[in-house]
Nucleic acid binder design. Structure first.
Lengths: 357, 357
DNA sequence: TGTCAACACGAAAACGTTTTCGTTAAATAT
DNA sequence: ATATTTAACGAAAACGTTTTCGTGTTGACA
């Protein structure tokens, strides 16, 4: 077993100083051609790679970014990670992930753990519990310590930072308008409780689309699912609730659901109740995941472009990190203002499949 | 903006030495009660947290483990990550992820990037291209540099390290035997090309189960999908291939598929061809993901327990890392042998749903 | 009064880099 | 022959810790 070689060892072996080795490896012309050759050859032979930790300590930057998300076994979030990793890698950064598991406390612990030097900045999406508590001090605290944050999807006005969001409102509008165009008269909405902002925005989009189409909203056609109960593992509960909803509103001829699972469940229940899709009832869901693509019939969805969200988030963060470099450098000579915080909106797109006409 | 405070700053502010501060914060009894109190109060006030990077450099360990997987938008892999993150977090480790994207080169680049000090050990699953090339020198090289590796799922004999695998062979056997018990006479297999070991093992399990049940294997009933074509985005290709397969083998009364997608596609095609599930044809898939749960009808599957795989992998790795500590310490006084490499087999489980009787 | 522990603290090294600032010797200029 | 530049390299500081080893000041004790 040969441990990784260090500058010091090379220096000793070649009987030169550490500084000489360092300079030679960076092709400094302070060092003679001869010794440079010799040192580089030796380094290559022993496969020398500078120690990242030492570099991090010296440069006071780690070249890694921290991702903090509520859940990873989730198509949207993993797609975002993929996007982040792509540009992070391209731009020379590593990616370290923390999972809040939708818990306020775990979110804080994770942040503190990572903020103590391990990373240069955060990309995160707020946990449900934090949204409920409306306690955002930990975000502001880490920003205050000079660590930039980029929030995506689940964002919040109380924190001043770059944000990347999907256009939930207009996505919902588009979806519902498509149903209206398809001659649907009684469009139902299946949504979540209001505290998750994305759910609220999609609901508002639904209402807006109805209104601008001259259709009066009917609160009987809105089903709010309490997602404090873990529907993912309680499918029957969800399905019976939807079934009950359908039965007491026989006139429903379309469903817009704020996520994939609700939409697919609605289709399943509708089929069981003998309705044909899309002839008797059309369905559109938000979030374009595996379920939508492979359901029977396949589901028309509003795609959020998770990967793009990840890529933009990473670019925003890294841009800011590398802009900080020069601004710190020129802190006293150059009085340029810091870049203002950016709120980037990713447009949604409707992917038409078999569940609509 | 108040930057993070350091020992040196505390020392200066309180007019003591850095060593005193360090000792006081670790409750060393070398320091008097008074100064300890004073220092701890001050540290708490300014929310002092030791700098991880400095600690890593000093201790020559980073307390982070590197995950290197082919793909993250994938139910199985993200489940494994969740498992890893769980125990890593519990045991005080962070998790840094790299994505090989099934590419040999990206795998190597990622490994080298992480192996240069950023992590203490790897948990990884080999990329398809690497398996094809059968070139494993980068794994052996990093092991040789003293960095432990745990491989999961896609493992290989040529590398000596801890491994966590799912019992693909017996999982397949169980599945096929269940079909046999359910009175199926002509059980088809939908599988991949052979170079991914898990596909091969599942195929062998299929054959074994048939043989031990006294059924003669019929090569016409085996469909091999060329997964070099990206079926995920070419569903039609997959489906027409399966349709063709069904039409030329009208007697098929059951399908065992080596993954979820193939199984769900088979169900879809079967339905289109007018077969009823599970009455005319029963289906079992490998890998228990979202698709299986939410398909109509829902799919009976062989569950791989991805989270458990992740947890075990992390425990194996961390155990080894922390065992190394003492063995290094007592290197000369204690001649204990290193722990042998462990191959841990996670049993599969059949999750019965609507696609079987 | 002189000796010796005990106590409380500081100096310095070490982890592996990079970079600034010498320093020496040779080469060139005066 | 002397002064000055240039080439080639080394010493040391710095990043933020922890830890080992001093060191000075007490108080007790003979």
């Amino acid at each position: 077993m040969k441990r990784k070689i260090t500058l010091k060892q090379i220096a000793k072996e070649l009987d030169v100083s550490v500084s000489t080795v360092s300079k030679a490896l960076s092709n400094s012309k302070e060092i003679s051609e001869d010794t440079t050759q010799k040192i580089q050859a030796f380094a290559k032979l022993y496969n020398y790679k500078p120690n990242n930790i030492a570099l991090s300590l010296k440069n006071r930057k780690t070249k890694t970014i921290g991702i903090l998300i509520p859940e990873i076994v989730h198509h949207f979030f993993s797609t975002v990670i993929r996007g982040i990793e792509r540009v992070a890698n391209r731009r020379g950064y590593n990616v370290i992930v923390g999972l809040s598991n939708e818990s306020f406390t775990k979110e804080i612990i994770n942040m503190e753990m990572l903020a103590s030097g391990s990373i240069d900045g955060f990309i995160l999406s707020i946990s449900k519990e934090t949204l409920l508590k409306q306690d955002y001090h930990h975000f502001n605290a880490t920003i205050d310590q000079g660590m930039p944050i980029v929030m995506f999807d689940r964002v919040v006005n109380e924190v001043d930072c770059d944000k990347v969001i999907v256009d939930d409102f207009n996505g919902a509008v588009k979806a519902v308008k498509k149903l209206v165009e398809n001659d649907c008269k009684n469009i139902a909405l299946i949504t979540t409780m209001d505290y998750v902002s994305v759910g609220r925005l999609r609901t508002q989009g639904y209402l807006e689309a109805l209104q601008s189409s001259g259709i009066e909203a009917n609160s009987n056609l809105i089903l709010k699912i309490d997602d404090s109960l873990d529907v993912e593992n309680n499918l029957e509960v969800l399905e019976t609730e939807i079934a009950h909803f359908f039965k007491s509103n026989q006139n429903i001829d379309a469903v817009f659901a704020v996520n994939e699972l609700y939409a697919v469940s609605a289709m399943k229940v509708a089929s069981k109740l003998g309705m044909r899709i899309p002839d008797d009832i059309q369905v559109i869901g938000f979030t374009d995941g595996v379920l939508s693509k492979h359901a029977t019939p396949s589901l028309t969805t509003v795609s959020q472009h998770g990967q793009k969200i990840g890529e933009q988030s990473a670019n925003l963060l890294i841009d800011r990190l590398e802009a900080e470099d020069v601004s710190t450098e020129q802190y006293f000579t150059n009085n340029e203002k810091k870049r203002d915080f950016i709120k980037m909106v990713i447009e949604t797109e409707i992917i038409e499949r078999e569940s609509t006409k």
